[in-house]
Design a protein around this nucleic acid. Structure first.
Lengths: 196, 196, 196, 196
DNA sequence: CATGAATGAGCGTTCATTCAT
DNA sequence: GATGAATGAACGCTCATTCAT
């Protein structure tokens, strides 16, 4: 039994995802979101404090689902390398299979000022920490270098994946993103140098 | 030779940089920019088509300078590794020493829709190509792996540096960005794996 | 005998008096009144047609009580002068001892359009008539001038008292209102001229 | 030469007076005022901070004119009695001959919260002081009682005149207001008591 | 070229009122 | 009768852009 109580809440988020993806945040009037969600304009304000809140909550909700999937999948992996592959694989495939979400996270979510960016940052924290944990696990396993600056490298890895997604999106999604998982992983593991 | 003709043009860009950094793009009214630049509101429209144009041209102008510096510096380098170090070093140090510019490129510039993002992308192209060239040079030198997907890896490298800058900025610039050049480079060259 | 049936009606009026006094009519949302009254929003509409009705009925109810007190007290007075003193005394002391009511009658009740003003006027009628009757009584007693324009003078007297209350209220209730009864009465009886 | 610069300012005030009188403050949309003034909506905000400001400034402007007339007329009067007659006469006749203004001052201006009431009060101050000065003059001349509480009596006088105007207005202006000047003055000077 | 007063489209948000439960 | 979630009309205000001077 889906809680009747949150029905409208999710309808609004669903509508917002669609409208944001189609028009971009700033061109998405609240009334347009309401119509897409099948509710009255005012109803939105029973569930969200202001328009910006919809964007934040949408992100948190979706990111929560993603982090959940990561955790579920990573648990079944044997080592840090495998875990990192899983993270990259899910990151790419989830966004690839959900272009609307990809659009919102990669483009629209950036359309916000410093204040909002910080909120987004904190919502992103569990994901960043997940990567950090994998790095530390790898170090303990001696699979990864012990002199890694994990705080820096986790950011480099996240930034690299993030840019890969954005580029794929801006290109018009002309190629397969998930097929790049192995090459991306290879870069994370071994960098660009040729083995001597 | 700075032509008298373009004096106001640059004053406006200068004012815009200051105002964008202080208030963010959406809170930067054209009249505020005009005041900072010491011109009348209407004058801005003699040099720029729309408000958005100011942002784009600002970015192009500044990025052009940066790419110029890269080229100048990279020319004097002996190998691909050294070239990559130079790129990363300039990328970090330029933005570190110019927080206003950093703020605009990392935060404000993202506040734009797909249309603008594409324009930014094309302005960014020469820089991306620069990185790509270095990768190809490294492959020719046999310093880098020959099986590199250069289109992908250049993006990963750019994305990683970009995220490093944004994180530093959002943290409140509490640590030194340029001191992370070596560790970042080490990651680019060798990844996270421990050498066996 | 307070009928059970009207319990909620009075709770709403009570809540409204409190909320109006605290926030002013326009900033008193119906939901706020409902909460103060301990009923649901919709319940209010079982007892009142519109929000404005609450204001009117509140006024009528309170004014009715006041006029009742006037009549009760005036009945026991011997002459017109004494009756006028009683009216002024009750007018000042009742509002002084009930600042919430004073606030609503002197400030909030004025926030209404011509339509409402007329309704208020008719609710006020019995009070104005009371003053008129006292004037006529005084004329019969030959205590008051026989050439008085009673319709005009009753208004002047009411307006003077009304302004005295409003001034006291706007001053922040920094002085005693009821201590001004004698001086006010002196003015009503003898005006400003020195006796020759 | 009427200053061209303030042309729009006065057009807006003029339009507002008309619209307020016709519809009441709360039913007077800014766009309606703009249309009546023959300017664009936005233009209003070049001259007024917010809608409420229009009401305040309108009042101040008109009251200033009135106080000016009082001063000009009072100067030519010989004694306090004559001065008081002039004040009452101008008060009644100005509002009688300008029903729109009367409506706004007596009805619409009261539709405001405590904050605004205080601003109105301070705009009204010079007028109240004018009455106070006349009272003091009368005391010096020994025309008025020396034991007058001038702060109280000036309010009583103002309140009495104010109510006289409001009653006349609410009655539908069915009788002549200025014809009541003498009777009103008689009340101010000698009260209601019959001379013994 | 430069100005800056004027424009007016555009939109987030509130809140009195309704009505299915 | 009582509830309170849902409604949606209504509007003040902002600000990018224009254009007469």
């Amino acid at each position: 039994m889906t809680s009747k109580k949150n029905e409208k809440y999710h309808m609004i988020l669903q509508g917002a995802l669609k409208v944001f993806a189609e028009n971009g945040y700033h061109r998405s009037q609240v009334s347009k979101i309401a119509k897409a969600a099948g509710v009255a304009d005012g109803t939105i304000y029973l569930y969200f404090k202001r328009k910006e809140d919809i964007l934040i909550r949408l992100f948190q909700e979706k990111l929560g689902e993603l982090v959940g999937k990561f955790h579920a999948s990573v648990e079944g992996t044997s080592g840090a390398v495998e875990a990192l592959r899983t993270v990259c694989s899910i990151h790419f495939s989830e966004l690839e299979s959900n272009p609307e979400l990809a659009y919102v996270t990669q483009i629209e979510l950036r359309q916000s000022d410093l204040e909002l960016r910080k909120e987004i940052g904190s919502a992103l924290k569990p994901y960043i920490v997940l990567i950090e944990n994998i790095l530390e696990q790898g170090i303990r396993e001696q699979t990864f270098r012990s002199d890694l600056n994990v705080k820096l490298v986790r950011n480099l890895i996240f930034g690299a994946m993030d840019e890969a997604v954005t580029s794929w999106l801006i290109s018009g999604r002309k190629y397969s993103l998930s097929e790049q998982v192995e090459e991306t992983l290879e870069f994370f593991l071994n960098g660009v140098s040729s083995r001597k």
